[in-house]
């Protein structure tokens, strides 16, 4: 396992192996695509012309893989989907990133792509929500919006002519993320969906599953919090002690919510270590299962729950295949 170091006892090992075997059998039943390694020949029917996509090249008239991954075929197109590669952005993806540098009129974000992404000052809403030209003063105050090492949520706007990746954050839902945990998982575990922002009302937690494999689990903050910040800035005359009190109130997260955040974060860690696809359903399912079987948060990454999760996944898939068949 890449992330977890587990010491399984004998029974757990046997159970795990049995469950893994079942998973593999189920997978081979559903197998449609085949996996290749670098320089493997991909069998194609040359008569009905094919289009070579990503991860393929031609050698002596044969289509050869240049990546390790799964062969995908869409009509004429043949391409190899790499596993464990870095994130490949698509326009409109919702991503979570970390600010690493503030440059003139822009922030640079690390988003697990082959380059750093660029978030222009002009392509994000100002905290006051007024549409206007960005002035030199705004440029000087950029650090009051995002500082280095802040975690930021944004949307992929597109590639510029010079090949750099630009982001935008033109809505209240994007912006700085606070009071929570950032988790990094391999990008292929996140599938593109309609909804990447999730508000788990039961736990008062918000979950953002970024397409780039950065996952944010944090306390749910009402949008409009920015306005409050704004208010504070407008009232500099309020006494200092009052300010501190207010600040404490603003940054206080109840213990219960913190525990929920940790539980959900550990569920994400566990699923990522197992290599299961991360959806809000699977994450919540795991978190709830751990809570219902009275497993402590710290034991969620232990061997027992690890094996249990695999077994539960087997059951789920058996049910699924029965429904289908």
């Amino acid at each position: 396992m890449r992330d977890l170091q587990l010491s399984l006892n004998q029974t757990q090992r046997v159970r795990l192996q049995a469950a893994l075997q079942q998973l593999q059998d189920l997978a081979s039943q559903a197998a449609g695509s085949s996996s290749v390694t670098v320089a493997d020949t991909i069998p194609v029917n040359n008569e009905d012309g094919i289009l070579k996509g990503h991860g393929t090249s031609e050698l002596d008239g044969q289509v050869v893989a240049t990546l390790c991954g799964v062969v995908e075929r869409v009509n004429k197109l043949v391409y190899v989907r790499a596993l464990r590669a870095r994130y490949k952005p698509e326009v409109g993806d919702i991503i979570v990133g970390r600010v690493i540098e503030i440059a003139p009129k822009r922030w640079r974000l690390e988003i697990n792509f082959s380059q750093d992404a660029v978030l222009m000052l002009s392509s994000m809403n100002l905290p006051d929500g007024i549409q206007r030209r960005r002035t030199a003063v705004d440029e000087l105050n950029m650090r009051s919006i995002f500082e280095e090492n802040d975690v930021v949520c944004a949307e992929v706007r597109g590639f510029q002519h010079d090949g750099s990746l630009h982001l935008q954050a033109r809505s209240q839902k994007y912006g700085k993320l606070e009071r929570g945990q950032l988790l990094t998982v391999p990008a292929y575990l996140v599938k593109r969906r309609k909804q990447h922002f999730h508000h788990l009302e039961k736990y008062h937690v918000s979950l953002i599953i970024g397409c780039n494999g950065f996952i944010w689990v944090g306390e749910h903050l009402e949008t409009g919090e920015n306005d409050m910040l704004e208010d504070r800035e407008k009232r500099p005359e309020t006494s200092k002690s009052n300010m501190i009190c207010e600040e404490q109130e603003l940054t206080f997260t109840p213990l219960e919510v913190r525990q929920h955040v940790c539980r959900i974060a550990n569920a994400v860690r566990l699923l990522a270590a197992l290599g299961f696809i991360l959806t809000v359903e699977s994450i919540m399912d795991t978190a709830e299962a751990s809570a219902s079987s009275n497993i402590e948060i710290k034991d969620m990454l232990g061997p027992e729950f690890y094996v249990q999760t695999v077994e539960r996944e087997v059951q789920r898939r058996i049910l699924l295949s029965r429904k289908r068949g």
Binding site: L23, S35, G275, I277, V310, R317
Partner: peptide
């Protein structure tokens, strides 16, 4: 890893 692609895998 192939299993992973089938939404399976370990």
């Amino acid at each position: 890893e192939d299993d992973v692609s089938q939404i399976v895998a370990v």
